[in-house]
Amino acid sequence: MNMVVATEFKPTIVGFLCNWCCYGGADLCGVSRFQYPPYLRVIRLMCSGRVDLSFIFRAFAKGADGVFIGGCHLNDCHYDPEGNYDALGNTLMAKRILEHVGVNPERLRLEWISAGEGVRFADTMIEFSAKVKSLGPLGTSEDTAVADLASRLDAATQLVPYIKLVERERLRVPVRTEEGYRNFFGSEEFTELFNGLILDKLVMSRIMGFLRKQPVPAVEIAGSLDLDPSEVARHLHELTEHGLIKFDAGEHLVAAV
């Protein structure tokens, strides 16, 4: 008898843990034998502030169902420059970008776990695993093919150097507290700056990425990238002005660089 058994979804979660706190918490969790689901794949870094936006995008682009970042509690960072604040800023920024490229931002989670909090590590893993499981494999809660998400994430990755520059110039967080960070990244001011400085570039980066793959008639771009046609027209205009795209002999648009 042939029986189709629905295989249980077992997500893959990529975890970036700082050596001093969260990795230690995960070790203590093991030593104490607290159990959690076997979905996490750990990458040990010295500080959560080392986590680059491109690490997060890379993980999702390669099909991670969730990304976890674990650092020391705020003001307890092992390092003087307090990299966990950077981790917080990066995570909030990444969530915003993920939202725009169509990855459910709930797939990214940041937690502060000290080396003494073995139980909390297990609890966090149990909870986050359940969350990611409920979202289903990457692409399902997004209702978008993983390949599409990947190409959008590649576009976002292309933009990371620019984002780093803009963050430093224009997006400085005024208050160094968790609340300060959350307020800033949740503020209208930020949204405005984000839309003006980053979002347009993100869309242009996607168009460029798309055109780099193959020449495409202008009218097909909006549909293929699931974008608003008038927005696309605006960007195409600007990109042509800058000489970044041009028409080829067959009236298809191609990337010039």
Partner: peptide, 11 residues
């Protein structure tokens, strides 16, 4: 100190 924050900041 090898925290690598500069690496994450460098554009």
């Amino acid at each position: 100190k090898g925290d690598g924050l500069c690496n994450a900041k460098c554009p």
